[in-house]
Design a protein around this nucleic acid. Structure first.
Length: 569
RNA sequence: GCGCCCGUAGCUCAGCUGGAUAGAGUGCCUGGCUUCGAACCAGGAUGUCGGGAGUUCGAGUCUUCCCGGGCGCACCA
């Protein structure tokens, strides 16, 4: 990488200047001695502000330091060095170097941008929506984000396992099962608190035709006014009086809804490597279960106490605002303990990092999960959380709050059927994930440059269109002046691996979307002003090179964003 | 009340560990298709970076206090 070589030169030069002036050096300061990629041609290809940072330490004027440092910078790839402004060093790379690099990039092809700079195993958990209903739009944002981050991380060398945590146990699942049984076998019931979507009615129909009639009448007796008590009574009743129906309905409902979710995700080309079921965590009574292993470790390390008959974890010692219950008064594990058990399992699988992508409404879990993780983890491991904020849908300028009268959010499949998966992915990824998003459905449908998705696709289509008529000939001559004229495309192409690495480390796919938009704009502009298929063979070949690398960069970027590039529109 | 996130052009948003003149798109105005796809391009106008104070060569970026908006504060999942 050209920037790495330049940085090496710069550091050596600064070290020389320091020695000459009998100055000692801290490692930390040397880390700040770096070039950055210039945004505009006037400032060269690479620029460094290191002399401004060193000024105080050296007790000299930045410009003066810059002159000394620049004097040592000598390499055949540098055509010119300028010291400008308060003491910036701007370096210009020779067009010959750039031309050679570009040709080399084409031979890398689809792998250009990928590096092996990082190693390690990462577990990325995302979506993990309860299997009690189809995915809504908000889940979609998490799903799309997770996939893009996985791609970014893999691109820099990490081994990533994408995992979906299935909450297939607990009260919500009981309520789902009850809802299915009620819809299937009870004519008149109070739906308050049950799951009510049409998918539940369909599930009930299908369950009924599969399982058949019940062997006796359903009679709950008198039910409590309170909805929570009522629902629990109904669940308990079904569980004891219709054991077989309950178990089958439970299994049937969860697996059917999971299929629904899997199908939704597939349509977005979002694929998890592993579906981890909560039910596999076992029970506290079994010492070999993840649940009891987790509990034991926290107890053994003396982070727990007993209060009101319940077992508490002193998470406040780790910055949480209150302590958390692990085992309830009745001996049952809390949801929190199952999550802790799940993370114990992740730890035992030896991942170097566990990244959890959560909806921002779950941010309260971060301190308590971090606490548990830190108690149980091995030295090399760490945990990280990425939050995404709500998605607000707008149509005709009006906010679509809820999809149905029951307060269900707009479903992801409805949105996909309306717009198609790729434009949704592009829009979801365009905004920073911790920024609430206004999703303009009319803009997403618009097929013009107003719509950044189409704008970027159109750039790719134009490349394809040109390259279907002629191709770059690597053995023929190119005009280096043409390369110089396309400063931005060339610079972004050469430095592409660096920015991808940065985006991965910052976990910011939105930056890649902005990159793609900018890059597309630059190409559209180039296209309008420079006829690629022109009389002059050398000029044409040079522009075909520019077109080819543009196509390649767009293709590779779309791949990471998990968006299919269009060759025709 | 406590905690987290957000506040940048009329609107939707970028802005890298503090760096050169705060940027895109949209909307508004003006030009450009006999020619590689005009689903496009070129040009013009647009700012108290929510507000105050502080840190320093330098602050949209860091600290602190206010203001405004969103979310979360279970022995639910």
């Amino acid at each position: 990488m050209i920037l790495n070589e330049l940085n090496q030169l710069l550091k050596e030069s600064v070290a020389k200047v320091a020695t000459k002036n009998a100055l000692t050096f801290e490692q930390k300061l040397l880390e700040q001695v770096e070039f950055e990629i210039s945004a505009e041609q006037l400032r060269g290809d690479y620029a460094s502000s290191c002399c401004l940072k060193l000024a105080k330490h050296f007790n000299k004027k930045p410009v003066e330091i810059a002159e000394h440092v620049a004097a040592n910078l000598d390499d055949s790839m540098i055509s010119e060095i300028r010291i400008e402004g308060p003491g910036f060093i701007n370096v210009f790379i020779t067009p010959e170097t750039k031309g050679a690099l570009l040709k080399d990039i084409l031979t890398h092809g689809d792998s250009w941008g990928a590096t092996k700079d990082c190693t390690g195993k990462i577990l990325l958990e995302f979506v993990s929506s309860n299997p009690t209903g189809p995915l809504h739009v908000g889940h979609g944002r998490g799903a799309v984000l997770g996939m893009a981050i996985a791609n970014l991380l893999e691109n820099i060398g990490y081994e990533v396992t994408k995992e979906y945590y299935v909450n297939d146990a607990g009260r919500q699942i009981s309520i789902l099962t009850s809802s299915v049984l009620l819809n299937a076998y009870v004519e008149d019931f109070d739906p308050d608190g049950t799951y009510e979507g049409t998918y539940v009615k369909e599930l009930a129909e299908r369950f009924k035709s599969k399982f058949g009639a019940l062997d006796k009448e359903v009679d709950f007796g008198s039910l409590d006014e309170d909805k929570d008590i009522r629902l629990d009574t109904i669940s308990a009743y079904f569980k004891s009086e219709f054991k077989q129906a309950w178990e089958e309905a439970n299994e049937f409902s969860v697996s059917e809804i999971l299929n629904l979710i899997k199908k939704d995700l597939q349509k977005f080309n979002i694929v998890h490597d592993h579906w981890f079921h909560e039910s596999s965590l076992g029970v506290v009574e079994d010492d070999k279960s993840d649940l009891s292993k987790a509990l034991k470790i926290i107890k053994d390390r003396e982070h727990t106490y007993n209060k009101d008959g319940a077992e508490w974890f002193k998470t406040t010692e780790f910055g949480d605002d209150k302590d958390r219950v692990l085992l309830r008064e009745n001996g049952e594990p809390t949801y929190y303990l199952t999550d802790v058990g799940y993370h114990k399992n992740k730890i035992d699988r030896n991942f170097d990092a566990c990244i959890n992508i959560f909806g921002a409404d779950h941010h309260g879990y971060i301190p308590r999960l971090t606490a548990a993780f830190d108690v149980m983890k091995k030295d090399h491991q760490n945990i990280e959380f990425l939050l995404y904020q709500l998605v607000n849908l707008y149509e005709q300028g009006v906010k679509k709050t809820m999809s149905t009268r029951r307060g269900e959010y707009f479903s992801l499949s409805e949105l996909r059927e309306d717009l198609g998966p790729d434009v949704i992915k592009f829009f979801f990824l365009e905004k920073k994930s911790d920024h609430p998003m206004d999703f303009d459905m009319d803009l997403a449908k618009d097929e013009s440059k107003n719509n950044p998705y189409f704008y970027a696709q159109y750039a790719y289509v134009r490349c394809c269109s040109i390259l279907s008529k002629a191709t770059f000939d690597p053995n023929s001559e190119i005009d280096l002046k043409e390369i110089e004229n396309c400063f931005e495309i060339v610079s972004k192409t050469i430095n592409y691996p660096l920015v991808l690495k940065e985006y991965a480390l910052e976990r910011s796919p939105h930056s890649l979307v902005h990159f793609v938009k900018d890059f597309s704009a630059t190409f559209h502009s180039f296209y309008e002003q420079n006829p690629v298929l022109c009389e002059d063979k050398v000029t044409s070949n040079s522009r075909l090179l520019i077109t080819s690398i543009t196509k390649q960069i767009l293709k590779n970027s779309f791949k990471i964003l998990n968006v299919e590039p269009l060759e025709k529109m």
